[in-house]
Write a protein that binds this DNA or RNA. Sequence first.
DNA 1: GGAACTCGCCAC
DNA 2: AAACGTGGCGAGTTCC
Length: 445
Amino acid sequence: MAEASHNGMRVDEGVITTKIAELTVRIDERSNLLWASPLGKLWRKIYGDKSNANSDHQLRSILFDKLHYDAVKTTETGAPAVDYETLAALPDNDVKHLIAVSKLSKVRDTYLKSLAREQVNGWIHPNFNLHLVTTFRSSSDHPNFHNIPKRDAQSRNLVRSVIFPREGHQFMSADFSGIEVRIAACYHQDPTMLSYINDPTTDMHRDMAIQLFDLKAFDKSCSGDKHLRQGAKNGFVFPQFYGDYYGNNAKILIEYARTCPDLSDGSKILDQLSDKKLVKLNNDGKIVNYNNFTDHVRDVEAHFWGKRFQVYQEWKEEFYAKYQKNGYIDLLTGFRCSGVMNRNEVINYPVQGSAFHCLLWSFNKIFAISKRQEWDSRLVGQIHDDMILDVEPSELEHIVRIVRKVTCKLMPANWSWIIVPIDIEIELAGVDDPWVKLDKYKEDE
DNA sequence: GGAACTCGCCAC
DNA sequence: AAACGTGGCGAGTTCC
């Protein structure tokens, strides 16, 4: 990890400076629209020259003390929240300027400014810490390489377009596929989960989408069906593995349903759910309530743990009981977590830690090989289950072979407790291209 | 003037 | 009965 930090990546200082300036102009424009709006004028009236669009404190007092809006949710300390979810739900139209200002400020202040601050002569050297995280995962800082925007296209492009490989080289990403689910299966050995992992014709997230949204058919080439599969994965399956419950799940799932493209038969999922009385719609097609859908998700949850993954459920109970007796938990990779932990922590730590150790072992092995074989290519970073390499193009095919061999063969062979196949996805950016657009690498088998 | 705290948001 | 795991970090605010 230290060597990866030492290797570092290039950043384009000139482009960072330009982008910061451009963002500042856009932020100012949006701020002016805010101050010209009724909300902004009220804000000015109360706070005068101290008015600050970045002040949650000021915003909170205006929205909830002055305008008496109902709080959607509260923060950890009980104050009304003023996060995106809250603002987006307000009837007040002027907050859209505030949302835009926040998003642009995040990119400028958290990412571009930190890259500008941390770079030395056009190079950044993110730290990768192995001694800080409770679960024996890693963390990253100065700059944090673990949270660079990826999902939001605008933020992703703004930040990643300033990060470059060495001249004449290209970025490669080698990402373990579903590593936490696979490592969890090594602990609980649930037969249903093992067959999902072992049989590539099956698909857990598809099955959960069908059950949660009561679909008659599933067409993986249909954007609507894909959207609901994504919803099942990110709004139910993963949160359930982390210890969430059906109430939160239903809220997220109904949002996926609300924003879903047409299904393969041309129908709309919201209409289907309405026909089945799972949601109540008004004449405009807006959701009045989804109480029955929530009850349905509760039933799916009961089936998920009680029937589908019963052995996984039993493992959770036994593992937690064992912690309560011993006061510590042992990871399959040989580490021990002790101290006061709640149930969700006890269930999550062993999976999170050991999953990261799959990357750590592979990273070390690949590093050793790269030194022995005197590669021009280098390991430059890591994001929990994703290795980032700076590749000299003539070495590309060789490196792909080595990375595949280490991650999918040597690493599982090193640990007899790995009873599932391990797979990685390799993605590649163009030569001299920044860390923006990576395409799946096509291998000749 | 800096430490500590709060809130929010980015990643996996 | 209760209810999402792990981080880093920016900005504002409060306290010393």
